[in-house]
Design a protein around this nucleic acid. Sequence first.
DNA 1: CTGAAAGCGCTTACAG
DNA 2: CTGAAAGCGCTTACAG
Lengths: 368, 368
Amino acid sequence: MSSVRVIAREAGVSITTVSRALNDDPSVSPQTRERVLRVANRCGYGPTIGRRVTTNVGVAYTQDVTIGHPFDASVLEGVTRGSNEQRFDVVVLHLQRDKRRGETYTQFFRRKGVPGVILRTNMETRHVCTKIAEEGFPHVVISERFDLPLVNWIDCESRTDSFRAVDYLITLGHRRIAFGMSGATDRDHMDRFEGYRQALAARGLPFCEDLVFKNQFTMAGGATVMNMAVGLREPPTAIYFADPMMAVGAVQMAHALGIHIPGDLSIVGFDDTDVRYSVYPTLTAVCQDATQLGFQAAMWLTNMVTGASKEPFQKTIPTFFEINHSAGPAPAVSPGGAATEGRAGEVVLQPAGPAATAVAHPAPGVAT
Amino acid sequence: MSSVRVIAREAGVSITTVSRALNDDPSVSPQTRERVLRVANRCGYGPTIGRRVTTNVGVAYTQDVTIGHPFDASVLEGVTRGSNEQRFDVVVLHLQRDKRRGETYTQFFRRKGVPGVILRTNMETRHVCTKIAEEGFPHVVISERFDLPLVNWIDCESRTDSFRAVDYLITLGHRRIAFGMSGATDRDHMDRFEGYRQALAARGLPFCEDLVFKNQFTMAGGATVMNMAVGLREPPTAIYFADPMMAVGAVQMAHALGIHIPGDLSIVGFDDTDVRYSVYPTLTAVCQDATQLGFQAAMWLTNMVTGASKEPFQKTIPTFFEINHSAGPAPAVSPGGAATEGRAGEVVLQPAGPAATAVAHPAPGVAT
DNA sequence: CTGAAAGCGCTTACAG
DNA sequence: CTGAAAGCGCTTACAG
């Protein structure tokens, strides 16, 4: 990490000009400014408070800041706890608002006084993470995966439990199982979809394109999917929702439509907080521990920044499948009144290994 | 805000010693250290990055850090949005972990590079807020009220709507209305309790000590209250829960007990996020907008810090009462099977003015 | 639009 | 345990 002095020498200007360029002083000419910033990028640059190193861990979004969402809140809780172990504070940064054109990400973070950053991203903006990694700035991406070895990330593996969840439905006698999800195209969501497809295939059930519903990741989206699903000529007897609030909205819509869950229709949800316990019936769901994601990311990052660790960090932590009360045996007749595929009379398959090891949850109303 | 130079002169030591004392260098003697810090408090002290002023707004807890809780997450969302308007970043600070003995709060915050702080507090630790106010450090306390004019705060006024909620239940024919709450003794919770008592009194209903239940502010706490309430010789026909998750837990316990809501028992909840829509039936509830609290606090604080505002800040924003589906007419016979007080046959009172103006919520499952 | 110089605020090796 | 001095990193009047 070099100073204005070094940058001035390299760029062939005075330190005065470097200071001005770094602080967006309008008096400096665009060409000079650009040259200085380019050099600053190459050398690395960061302000200090006296000689003290700042001890803030940054949290930044490559997309819109969604810090109030339950998932993000849980992640932040973990980040705060993890940073705490190394006596770091957590600062929420605004990449879109504050990053200057021409400024590198490294420069931006240094200027903000953070020696490392935890990133939230999505499909459209994940290239930002790659860029940050290429610049060599200490970082961890939460809840996303990258093939490039230089990007650090931590992610939940949801394919296995998605498979398990759908297989569980199959062992309960369901043959027409729908899949509901947001339009998100990140690896995590693709995994859930893959788990669904593979579970069908493993049991020899056909994959049916019109049983795949994409909608908003909100209660409204889930409610819409529920409406559409039961309106099919051959409605599903179970739906796996791979986004948390969609399952909640779907259950509420089922209540509104007089559809009994799980008697008429089974639902398996996805949860990254505790919302599954607020729903009635409590949701059988694939769950991810968002706090763990944040905690482990912060632990590694602070260790990296203090020099205690030099290892790269690519980590997958498992989801868990929790059986509550929203999924049950397939009904003999589907909610729409149409006969099921004629397989309802079949011998119900015994639960496969994975489903048998799932977490069995205690009585409703006792959990918090 | 003065520098090491000034403090050195005042304390009669060298700037070297000041620097060391400020940075907890073990070589400096306890007496010297104490003298230096005392002077630093008096003069005010804060490090800068070069000559640039730091633009972080602090968020600190006088108690345990509960940043992942839904209420706190919503507050933080608002704080982030509000700070954003003035191009400030938000940093989460750890008062318990990092504040040094002998260091004033002002010193602590200056050392952390924040010119202003947003505080979350509780009854046991609210004196910390008073202390910070007395030191004259820019601050806003979220969700608490103070009589001292020098403390800045923003709070929701929940008494009026608590009154309205209970009055609404009375107009629905309920005569035995219980009250469920956490053991919290802050003003906000006392207000909700007052609203409950006053509503009973206004309609000439007796206040009954054994219809007041205090328990944990969790689903488990609410479930316990539900169990206890229906076990009474004369069970209530309605319960007002003044803590969000308690109402949720109570509803789940009602389902488990086969008690129909609102047919057998009406519930009015309290919500500071969106959880009321996840519950079945969706909760009629007194609601507070946590995001607004955070947003307005951050707006004022950043204006204060940049010198754009000099006014003190004590603000109350209203809650709102939202009618959903968990409260209905009182049953003729109470859930326990015991006859109600013999008033069930009475003419049902017409809704009073306030209740009539309450927000009527759209169909369930459509909200997000 | 740029720089040499003044100068602030801080820390740290060195000396005692 | 303390300080005078060296010195770094930065910014800002002043001059051109």
